[in-house]
Design a protein around this nucleic acid. Sequence first.
RNA 1: GCCGAAGUGGUGGAAUGGCAUACACGUCGGUCUCAAAAACCGAUGAGGGCAACCUCGUAAGGGUUCAACUCCCUUCUUCGGCACCA
Length: 798
Amino acid sequence: MSYNFKEIEEKWQNTWIDTKAFRAQADPNRKKYYLLEMFPYPSGKIHMGHVRNYTIGDVASRFKLLQGYNVMHPMGFDAFGQPAENAAIKNQTKPDIWTHRCIKEMETELKKMGFSYDWEREFSTCDSDYYKWNQWIFLKMFERGLAYKKASAVNWCSSCQTTLANEEVVDGGCWRCHTKVEQKDLEQWYLKITEYKERLLEDLGLLKQWPERVLAMQNNWIGKSSGVDIYFRLKNSDKIIPVFTTRVDTIFGATYIVLAPEHPLVKELIKGKSEEKDVLHFIEKVSKESKLVRTSSDVKKEGVFTGAFAVNPVNNEEVPVWIADYVLMEYGTGAIMAVPTHDQRDFLFAQEHKLPMRVVITPKERGIKIEELTQAYEGDGVQVNSGEFNGLSSLEAKEKISLWMEKKSIGKIQTHWRLRDWLISRQRYWGTPIPIIYCSKCGIVPVAYKDLPVELPVEAPFTGDGGNPLGKINEFIRVNCPKCSGSGRRETDTMATFFDSSWYFLRFCSPKYAVAAFDVQEAKYWMRVDQYIGGIEHAILHLLYSRFFTKFFQDLKMVDFGEPFEKLLTQGMVLKDGEVMSKSKGNTVDPDSMIKDYGADALRLFILFAAPPETELEWDQRGLEGAFKFLNRVWRIQENLKSKADDALLRIMHKTIKKVSDDFNEFKFNTAIASLMELTNAIYQMGADKEIFSRLVIMLSPIVPHFSEELWQILGNKESIFEATWPKYDPKLLIEENVELVIQVNGKVRSKVQVSRNISEDALKELVLKDEKLAVWLETKQPKKFIIVPQKLVNIVI
RNA sequence: GCCGAAGUGGUGGAAUGGCAUACACGUCGGUCUCAAAAACCGAUGAGGGCAACCUCGUAAGGGUUCAACUCCCUUCUUCGGCACCA
């Protein structure tokens, strides 16, 4: 007979909700612990990824609770976004109604897993008393010039009918639907995240408890690159063409320069020249290529001569000006100097088009002959052909040439960044309306703070024929200008949903607060988030935006820190047959049916035991059955309790307490469970008493809370197990009187011996030399040396 | 190309420089049973040996060390991020 998980789980889930067991209240006298998992989009159904993410968080949260921390563990919903609109079109319902129904279903699913949330803090980002503060933040940014509108080529997803941020373009496709992203010229709203680029980069150094790879990804994304802008002058003109380089040490080897086809100077350069026709033709051709094709590295580099020449400012040499598809307008200055001998791309291009080369750096141990070059030499070396810098090491030259150029005003030390401003406007209905009014007289006018929120109209025409439904609602659009009271028109774009999730962790500190985005005092107590848990897919997007917003709040003096998340854990994906579980692959396992068959506790146990939290987890149905079997094994212990257990078991238990406590602190749940299993096996060998069993149950409770609550009650306790204290171990009981020593000969184990832990070295040597098993090894050879590691091993070197 | 993570039995995975493969799954054997299931007990890296034991073994090769899955160097493979980035 197995234990009645169905009845037990339902009973405790209701109890926890009825008694508000996990309500958190600020208390300056208690040490706080803010544990947060990335809140879900309410699709209605939870999947195994959610189960894993939230189970990891729940164990940590309950463990901290048992350790006496004042734990806040909130949950809410990231409820704006496109699926609601798609559903509205498909099912003839309203996004609002559809979303709220999904939220209800999702809450039920989460409750069935027995997660310890403070449900009183729950909110959804589609609540107007939440998104009101999105608008407030936007206006604050607008005031400071951090929210602005500009016309530019933007990423456009034709399937989603909306613009996308750079961060939302993955492999040239839309992050949501993978449709190929097009470029479109539009006037759009941006947030000036680039204003914070230095701080965003620098403060990565503060994030000591973030995974390396997330830091590396953010570092790459921000993409700082230091070098020099060098000013080439156009021959017979006073026009300057700045080029950017990180290899200023190679400037004397620049034999031509290359502009991007879109470079604004190109048209002027070619005017009236014989090359004009060819160049225009080339530009036309390149403009038709998609960005993806153009930037793929295996395509041959193409280019044409413009007929113009520029002057290298370091030696007044005239060099030809080319244009080529491999130079991009959006990076650096849109123009490069080409040094074929020391840059592989330039080398290939120069070979192809028979352009001159000159060596300016040679490796220390040999010279370089141009005729013998088969590829560019990109390493360090000694300067040659470099005027007054000859003989210097290239590293030294880099610095000296930079300073020299600045002094002579022919260049400027410059830093270029990959990070671009964040495009936040979306041509969609189901999102936060951007609080802006267009007035024919006053131009762009922000909505007054007192008029917030700009409510999203619940009734909207969903026809499915594209376009933003907000544009068709006259009551919404028509509004008086806050400045001149003349007739104005509302912005119909809404905010990207990543805006919503960039500060929700602050809102959880005071979710009902009506006078500001969050209560500064509450935030002071609860923030920062001590432990944040979520998927690696947010390594750049959400985590970068949240860091940006936090720094903005720091500048508003609403918080006194610049980083929101102290410690970050990115949990691995759940796989089935080696592939990521996904609806499109049809290899999903439904958590609900697993709960039905084995209970939420068994599911939680399996998912924690099968792999460490950050690695991928292979779904194994038999592993789940194994977890269920283990629970039944523990359950049966209570039927056979002894009045007094052996001392040997007591020792094992204290060791287990130490191991499990240490492991829980480091999120090593799989090994914590392994040692709880070992303790259980020992109990089967020796028989436990009530005391020992009670402690086993407490240690299990973060992992399998319903199961443990029930056993706790059966053991005669009136209070919830989560009012109990985490067991402590007695260090004295960890010390064994007799220890087993491993005896090695030349590092190989040859024997083992039981000795008192305080045995003297001499006594030990004597004992070892008498050991029968070692006789074979020692009879012909003399021991040279004894290595003794107390209480562990003896190594005899012969 | 640059940056990051990883590579251990049939499988998931353990090992502050100190007994490689804990714990579990699977498989095999046993107990109980008329029988089966459940439960309980045991075996289980490869090769050799009746056995005691021996040899090999943590992607490959080298090094440091009394001792290396662990530290260092070189290489290979897989996964992830960035990238005609100048």
